[in-house]
Design a protein around this nucleic acid. Structure first.
Lengths: 110, 110
DNA sequence: GCGAGTGTATGGTTTTCATCGAACACTCGG
DNA sequence: CCGAGTGTTCGATGAAAACCATACACTCGC
């Protein structure tokens, strides 16, 4: 019986269980949008939560990741002391085709 | 000199001038989502502002339409005493391909 | 020119949400 | 076993946004 004391694994929501409104609300925030974009530019499982360049404290950051998880946008795994992330591109694309493409490739209007 | 006293024409924003964040925020609200969907199901210029089935008062409704205009989602024209609406599908699709399709054809997860 | 119908603007209330500081949990290397 | 590093949770604060009720503006039929 390896009852090993582990940290509680983060709760994940599959994109298939996510209402559109939740997905849109998750992406309609400048900080989270930055996280998603930066995450899309890195290989899976290579970025820990603290490695993102956003102007908010740890607490807020943690909250934002919880929202992204709840929207099926991000998957997290504990790796030693840090929590590493992966953008759930294929699953999310299957549920909301084109949405990620939109927010990723967008250039702001001149 | 026909200085005719007309009502101020509503200010419109073309989708090309709309940042993604604004578009997402506009759609990430249950009332506005209903408006867009109901509007998509009707012919252009056939729906006045008051003809939508949403559980808010006139003032809030007026505000929501202002947000939709500002996001390049809706065009309005004064027709007698009422203000009729049109969903700017082609323009908005050109700026954000697939986004409207997504919010329109979506079925909530079981 | 009234009065009904329709929409906007204003002012104020309530709710929601992003944020922070501080305290706590876990992992790992000395 | 301690201390540094990392992330979550809690409580509180502040800002943004949705909302309502009221008052105002415009159009039209009578």
């Amino acid at each position: 019986m390896t009852t090993g004391s582990h940290r509680a694994a983060p709760e994940h929501t599959h994109p298939d269980d996510v209402p559109v409104l939740t997905a849109l609300a998750a992406l309609a925030d400048p900080v989270r949008l930055t996280l998603v974009r930066e995450l899309a530019g890195s290989a899976a499982w290579t970025r820990s939560c603290g490695s993102f360049d956003v102007p908010v404290g740890k607490a807020a950051l943690s909250h934002h990741f919880a929202v992204l998880r709840g929207a099926g946008l991000v998957e997290q795994r504990d790796e030693g002391p840090r929590r590493v992330n992966r953008l759930r591109r294929p699953e999310f694309d299957a549920r909301f085709p084109g949405l990620l493409d939109l927010v990723l490739r967008d250039d702001e209007p001149s």
